[in-house]
Design a protein around this nucleic acid. Structure first.
Lengths: 218, 218
DNA sequence: CTCCAGATGTATCGACTTGATACATCGATC
DNA sequence: GATCGATGTATCAAGTCGATACATCTGGAG
């Protein structure tokens, strides 16, 4: 359970918070929302659901919504929803903003659910992430500088390209941070309105960006 | 062996082709060359080495290079090198340019070893990759268009960002393809000179780019 | 109307990877 | 002369993917 499921579980809880769902749909939505950077297979989804149910954060019911008539038939489907404990746990998770939330995949998930996170936490995560990437940048630069001689041109180009990716990502974060600050200044209470999209600075993606995104589309 | 080891094995063979090496160094170099998009752990390296040795493509010797004196001691280290069969196999692999070489991680590895690949194969891989990404782009666009309404702003921003990543990658490929064509035209025989780096179009990274890059920075 | 291809749906398996760790030797620095 | 970190080989538990099995529902072609 302590693999990278730190990614899976919050994502599942976050989606179920919006509305109850069954596995198949969960997978579709998950691959749509996180799809740009993360694939989800049944082999991890179903065990995760079981584990969440075991811990009492979600419950699975076999009867769908209001279908009063036919008793039998109805295709087998298990609709999951959050329990009170689950909601509580989700709130805790969403309020956290420690180092783990600055890591690649964790950050992506947290960002995807920023809509359910308060403004202060958002800002802390964005800034932590930015610091994290800046450190990485420095390490890449040193590493490249130290070995430039021995590299052939294609390897060099690959590294140069990777470096630029990260730089671009930092600039993207800068844009987002500016936005969050702007919102906070304009609306001191932090109404929850995100505001982003077409800011001038906005640009690259959270990191390895849209790789998959085609496993299941809708 | 049929997992994503399609990535590992060519990379190992490619590195060993440059010079014999032992596991530890192999890992360092691998994380340096592929480091921007791929981590390599011992848990996959050693089994892969064993498998390659079993198939007769590499051999591991316990005596390092010319150390004629002391018989015993000398820290345990196994230096691997390509066999004749291994070189042959590597040539086959490097000459291939089918659909699998257009996929994310496979492409990255192939690109990293473009220096050992002939100009024609390079071009085929680059163009195949480009087509691949263009298809993906179309799918993402449709997917986003179909669900724009239901998405909150942060999710939307994440998707927009992912989309832009891929678009940028296509432009990067365009630059590389132009370069390859230019080289071919200027030097019909394809001397092997890559030429790239500071072309005007060059920009983003092969895909999920420099994530890791810090696991070992020799 | 019938049949069947393809979407929906739950679930498992084998092969593979990661991250941590165990173990051991070498090289410095104090 | 000992302690700390880099070098070096190797394994393990936990978790993941991709494929697949199985079943039902739906929309059209014939």
């Amino acid at each position: 359970m302590r693999g990278r499921s730190d990614v899976l579980e919050p994502a599942i809880l976050g989606l179920l918070h919006e509305s109850p769902m069954h596995g198949y749909e969960l997978r579709k939505r998950l691959n749509l929302v996180l799809g740009s950077f993360r694939a989800l297979s049944y082999g991890s989804l179903y065990p995760a659901l079981k584990s969440l149910a075991d811990r009492g954060w979600i419950v699975g019911s076999e009867s769908p919504e209001g279908a009063p008539h036919a008793v039998t038939s109805k295709r087998a489907r298990i609709v999951y929803q959050l329990t009170a404990d689950g909601k509580e746990h989700l709130q805790e998770v969403l309020a956290s903003s420690g180092p783990s939330t600055w890591e690649d995949e964790n950050f992506d998930v947290r960002f995807a659910f920023f809509g359910q996170t308060d403004a202060e936490t958002r800002l802390r995560i964005l800034e932590g992430r930015r610091t994290r990437l800046t450190e990485r940048l420095e390490q890449i630069r040193q590493s490249v500088a130290r070995t430039r001689e021995r590299m052939d041109e294609y390897t060099l180009e690959l590294q140069r390209h990777g470096l630029e990716q990260v730089e671009r990502e930092v600039r993207w974060l800068d844009g987002l941070i500016d936005n969050e600050r702007g919102v906070r200044r304009a609306r001191p209470t932090g109404t929850g309105r995100p505001a982003a999209a077409d800011s001038p600075a906005a640009a690259p993606a959270s990191a390895d960006a849209a790789r998959n995104t085609e496993k299941e589309r809708g």
